[in-house]
Amino acid sequence: MMDISKGRLGPHEGKEIELLLSGEKAVAVFVEGLPRTAEGPLQDSKLKHFKKLIPTTKDINLEADFLFLPGHERAAKDLAELMKKSMSSPGYDASLERQIGSLLGYSQLDIEMYIQNLKDLGRL
């Protein structure tokens, strides 16, 4: 059994570009526009990008920017589809959340800590 108390639940916010360029992460998603730090790597073709509208349960579409390393377009498209399923369904699905977390580069320990947090909050 995994000891989730050793996890460190926290976002990659502000570090995504660095994590992508170091290869620690293959895909990142932004819902509030791309950070300025993405401009150079996109121009140099070190990173690839696409936008996708993600429908939500609140009848609004979220415009998401997906950044990914060359060769990881399939993972980015898979992430977009998983997010679409997750955001258009009421509540959370642990299996979907695990897949999303994995594609976003979180450790299994951190993902399980996140799932446990959702359970503790009564959202799962």
Rank of each mutant, 00 (worst) to 15 (best):
D3C: 05
R8F: 12
L9Q: 02
E16P: 07
E18Y: 05
E18H: 05
L19S: 06
L19N: 10
L19T: 01
L20H: 10
L21W: 03
G23R: 02
G23M: 04
K25T: 01
A26M: 12
V27A: 06
A28H: 04
V29M: 13
V29R: 10
F30T: 05
V31P: 00
G33Y: 07
P35S: 08
G40N: 11
P41K: 01
L42H: 00
D44V: 06
D44K: 15
S45F: 09
S45L: 09
L47Y: 01
K48Y: 08
K48P: 00
H49L: 14
K51Q: 15
K52R: 15
T56F: 02
T56H: 07
T57R: 10
K58W: 11
D59P: 00
I60Q: 14
L62E: 13
D65S: 14
F66A: 06
F66Y: 14
L69V: 06
L69A: 07
P70H: 04
E73R: 14
E73Q: 15
A76G: 08
A76L: 10
A76T: 10
K77P: 02
A80M: 09
A80K: 12
A80G: 09
E81K: 14
L82F: 09
M83S: 03
K85D: 13
M87D: 08
M87I: 01
S88W: 03
S88F: 03
S89W: 01
S89E: 14
P90D: 12
D93R: 10
E97W: 02
E97P: 04
E97M: 15
Q99R: 15
G105Q: 05
G105W: 00
Y106W: 07
Y106G: 00
Y106C: 00
S107Q: 03
Q108W: 01
L109E: 01
